[in-house]
Design a protein around this nucleic acid. Structure first.
Length: 291
DNA sequence: GAACCGTGGAT
DNA sequence: TATCCAAGGTT
């Protein structure tokens, strides 16, 4: 059982969104920036920031010359700001060690900060046309349904997930990358998590899940992450204060964003440890590298 | 493998 | 209103 390449690619040619990082003129650096930004953040929120970043920092070396604080400020509220710091570090490594050219080799990409199993292969495939399995949450869900006949993907296992997709990836290098992009697009637009639009699906007739009568997901319950009241929320509030000021702030300014002093201290400390916040000589706090 | 790391729109 | 979920990575 697999996902028919002709049906999928025809559908993709007709239906795919016109996203800027998919255009032929987009550089590998543009692809890398998009992949980092898209980690756990929806396309609609990424797109405007991506345009700003590529206009401001068209090359890795351009970004490497910016301060961490500038990059964090430009990241805005995309979330998980450690991604911005890691991308900045990756830009520095690419400028220093790779001639200002984003590597095309999966293992070389994996060695860069913030680039894991998904992003390394996404860059190799989408920026350089390499034939390698690209497995994100959309692909996992499409494969679980269309190939395995399950209601949803089970817990992730990089080794198994990569093997699953390798098994259905077209052999020709020239079509493999488009096939991966099409699988992702199918998961994003049609084979969605909540209400799949099976009536619009190009591979409906071959879908193992549909043929099995669309049984409900039978695997272990997925852990839902809380947000309200967590350190994640408090760190976000603290960082928001620093993003909004050009000058370092006194601690009193940070104390007002959250009532629980113990949690506040813990979060501020972890932000310092993570390098997302810096303390100035006079004891004030700021984004890193700007003072 | 599990916990942790932001944010906001959709349902 | 509460929950779900979005092109993951690191520890």
């Amino acid at each position: 059982m697999s996902v028919d390449a002709d049906l999928l690619l025809d559908w993709f040619a007709d239906t795919a969104r016109d996203l800027p990082w998919r255009r032929p003129e987009c550089t590998a650096w543009g692809v890398l920036v998009s992949e980092i930004m898209l980690q756990q953040t929806p396309v609609a929120r990424v797109e405007p920031i991506w345009h700003e970043w590529l206009a401001r920092w068209p090359l890795p070396s351009d970004m490497a010359r910016a301060s961490q604080g500038e990059v964090l400020r430009a990241w805005g509220k995309l979330g998980y700001p450690r991604r911005a710091l890691r991308l900045h570090a990756a830009a520095g490594a690419i400028a220093e060690h790779h001639g200002d050219v984003v590597p095309a080799d999966v293992d070389t990409l994996l060695a860069l900060p913030g680039i894991g199993a998904y992003t390394a292969r996404a860059v190799a495939a989408f920026a350089y046309g390499r034939r390698c399995p690209v497995v994100d949450t959309n692909v996992r869900r499409v494969v679980a349904r269309a190939v395995h006949g399950a209601g949803d993907a089970g817990p992730p296992s990089t080794t198994r997930d990569l093997a699953d997709v390798e098994a259905i990836l077209p052999a020709e290098q020239s079509v493999a990358a488009r096939y991966s992009a099409a699988l992702m697009e199918l998961g994003a637009l049609v084979c969605t998590a909540r209400s799949p639009r099976c009536a619009d699906c190009p591979v409906f007739a071959d879908c193992a899940w549909q043929r099995a009568g669309r049984p409900a997901y039978a695997g272990p319950a997925k852990a839902v992450q809380r947000f309200a009241g967590t350190d994640r929320q408090v760190r976000g509030l603290l960082l928001d204060v620093l993003r909004d000021t050009s000058e370092p702030v006194f601690k009193a300014k940070l104390d007002i964003v959250w009532p629980d002093g113990g949690q506040r201290e813990r979060c501020l400390h972890s932000l310092l440890v993570d390098g997302l916040v810096e303390q100035t000589g006079d004891g004030r706090f700021a984004l890193p590298g700007e003072h």
